[in-house]
Amino acid sequence: MIVAPATYYLRGDPFDERFAWRMFSSVRTLRCKIEINERTSKTRGAGTKVDPKRIVPGTWVKHLERAQPKVVAHYLESRCSPETRQVVMSRACLTTSGARGPSSRWSYDCDADLLERQGVGAP
């Protein structure tokens, strides 16, 4: 009862607020935008931009915008196909005052089955 919420403050991931009793927390004030790119063996550069709203229901897109780690990992992994080699999600946030907030980058390597995270929320 006491330990489960306490782990939130120890694990260094401010966005997964489950089981932490953080109703009306200020983490939700961040306005975040995500961009997802998929790279095939043929594409060069950043890859093809994909709109997740056309792929999964809006609730899951909100989880992606909030960088819910389990959802991000599962979504990126689910986009792998024989053609798609890498899926990258970039997330940039603004604070209530309009200043630049935390940003992060998640990259899933389909061949190596490897997820890499950079920025806030990274382990």
Binding site: P5, A20, W21, R22, F24, S25, S26, T96, S97
Partner: peptide, 23 residues
């Protein structure tokens, strides 16, 4: 425990300053 953690979660500058509540 729930009330205690709900209180702790509000002990940041955004909440203290009132700007979060305003937003």
């Amino acid at each position: 425990v729930v009330y205690a953690y709900a209180m702790i979660s509000k002990l940041d500058s955004l909440w203290w300053g009132g700007s979060f509540l305003a937003m």
